[in-house]
Design a protein around this nucleic acid. Structure first.
Lengths: 337, 337
DNA sequence: TTTATTTACGAAACCGGTTTCGTTCTAACC
DNA sequence: GGTTAGAACGAAACCGGTTTCGTAAATAAA
């Protein structure tokens, strides 16, 4: 159907190898022949078949980005960072969404073993109690870099933020604003970064002479309506918290929604701080105090690590871990009067 | 390096064709042989090489989604819709960002001619005065479906919303709320859907006995800071508008930002309505009245059209156009007292 | 018993670039 | 003059599945 290298060879009365070499600008082809081939290829609008060369070269020029969702400011910004580096390197980005579903994550990674991508960037989904699917991929020698939601049991490059410190700072901030009953909204229990944030939260409580109250530790899921009713119940209690740390953006906005429903005033009745890279955090009602991760930067860094691994022939992937600190932006939701 | 079909054939003393057929569950292989092959393949962890089969079958199982950015609620939701259908069909999604840059869009589409993807879903970038790159792709017989930001000069399937009506309704809504100087924030002049929204805006003005004021038609770009100063200047004028229609989400949030800076009250000083699929529109300060496009649904529909084209062998792609209406959600930003 | 058909499998071509390994011819060197 | 080095190009193997076609054996039909 479409123009192949053999067709060009035939038309030009050359060998296919000559045409191939000419098109790749090989030194063993004369300038005139190259010119002839180039011009003819141009004229007939020759486009090389990607799959033929991928098959031979064992490279696809694709990298995968696996993440829970794209409707989260952190991830959408991180994609931009990744994409900018990939573009620079001439690679293509394939985005896969797990929707926080381990089964999907598994089936996605399983597919990668077919060689569809040269490398993988991943932010693991919530329920990653098992990580054999990640191991299996590494066993196939496909370079893999974690970003943000890392998987601690696996030796691979990682890019993350200072989660413990951020959890600490967020909690400390609420305490400094007068909160005495600070709740922490966690996600599925086996996410390392959430655990770190939580430990930072607990450390801050202890540092200020408060103890951890199980009732103020709320484990949410990836089910929006479940989370809503969970948070609703907490805020309806008489001894409701006077400060909330949202470890994930979505949970924080749910707090806002529930407060609206319950007619609770933020920050008067309850102060809120959330992990979020939302650019319109300052436009919320009230503006949201955030722990903001350097999403774009993290995406770029992770991508760079991946390309380092891809470009070096020796497969001794040094399992580097890069920490990029988050920043606390104080806004209306933790204001005091 | 990795296990191939030939290795299996050798180990099992079968012909490669037999193994291939067995693995594909061909009827011309006996049950016992199939079982033997399956089990052995399982045991040695055989994974077929995707590029070898793609080369032969002339199918990749990938579709491309080309869009301006991912940090816009419409697009991030649309991706989810697309992804859900693709998943169901066993296809993989490759996301490409143009950043509203025609050059990038061209280079991205040019690459597709190599057969990297089986089909393309695209929401064109702003400055699409030229569309030859899209034509070229269609010439290669690669199915293409437009969604949201269509390109009118090209005969292909399209999924969009009722842009004219939405522009009309948005404007009418502001007028009904007492606005007499309604401004329209447009994007780059050659985006068909923005033009339709604008024409709806103009029609509404006329219907209510007002004429179009050039000073209230503001052409923004994809440069955030430029837009900011443009909008800033408009709102600083003495004869500033008392109502604003934001044709794109990003422009609408910029209006909010500027109003904060100028200490203008929404909706008292100026009422705002914006095209947006932002799920937290109701959490903004004030909550934002929106024209909300059925983003997820549009993504799904576009993907379905693409798969229809992919699955039908006959290449008579009927250039269907599907319109899915938007909904106006009235909230605080257009409230009257 | 002979012929037709089905079943089960193998050999080899094929998809379209890439790469290795010649081969020819010319220029250069001792 | 004979040998060598290098330049320019061709033939064919190769990447790893897929598919076509052929064939032997077994079964069914005549």
């Amino acid at each position: 159907m479409s123009i192949t290298i053999r067709k060009i060879a035939k038309d030009l009365r050359l060998a296919v190898s000559t045409v191939s070499k000419a098109l790749r600008d090989s030194h063993e082809i004369s300038i005139e022949t190259k010119k002839r081939v180039f011009e003819y290829a141009q004229k007939v609008d020759y486009v090389p078949n990607l799959y033929a060369s991928s098959l031979k070269k064992r490279k696809t020029g694709n990298i995968a980005v696996v993440l829970p969702e794209v409707a989260d400011s952190f991830f959408s910004l991180a994609i931009n960072g990744i994409e900018s580096v990939a573009r620079e390197k001439g690679y293509h980005v394939m985005v896969y969404l797990t929707h926080e579903d381990l089964m999907r994550e598994e089936s996605i990674l399983r597919d990668f073993r077919s060689g569809r991508v040269d490398g993988v960037l991943i932010s693991v989904s919530g329920g990653a109690e098992s990580n054999s699917h990640i191991h299996d991929l590494c066993a196939k020698n496909i370079p893999l870099v974690f970003f943000d939601r890392v998987c601690e049991g696996i030796e691979a490059a990682k890019v993350l933020t200072d989660d413990f410190d951020s959890g600490y700072k967020a909690t400390e901030h609420l305490i400094s604003k007068g909160c005495r009953k600070v709740a922490f909204l966690a996600m599925s229990e086996n996410l390392a970064i959430i655990n770190h944030r939580q430990r930072g939260y607990e450390a801050a409580l202890n540092a200020y002479g408060m103890q951890v109250n199980k009732n103020l530790l709320i484990y949410c899921s990836n089910n929006e309506t479940d989370n809503h009713s969970l948070i609703y119940r907490i805020l309806k209690r008489n001894d409701r918290p006077d400060g909330i740390v949202g470890s994930v953006e979505k949970l924080t906005t749910t707090v806002y929604t529930v407060c609206n429903e319950l007619n609770l005033q933020i920050p008067q009745d309850v102060k809120v701080i959330g992990f979020s890279s939302l650019q319109i955090a300052s436009l919320l009602n009230p503006s949201l105090t955030t722990i903001t991760q350097p999403a774009f930067e993290m995406g770029k860094t992770a991508a760079r690590l991946l390309f380092e691994a891809l470009e070096k022939k020796t497969q001794e992937a040094k399992a580097e871990t890069i920490v990029i600190p988050s920043v606390l932006f104080e806004r209306g939701s933790t204001q005091t009067f």
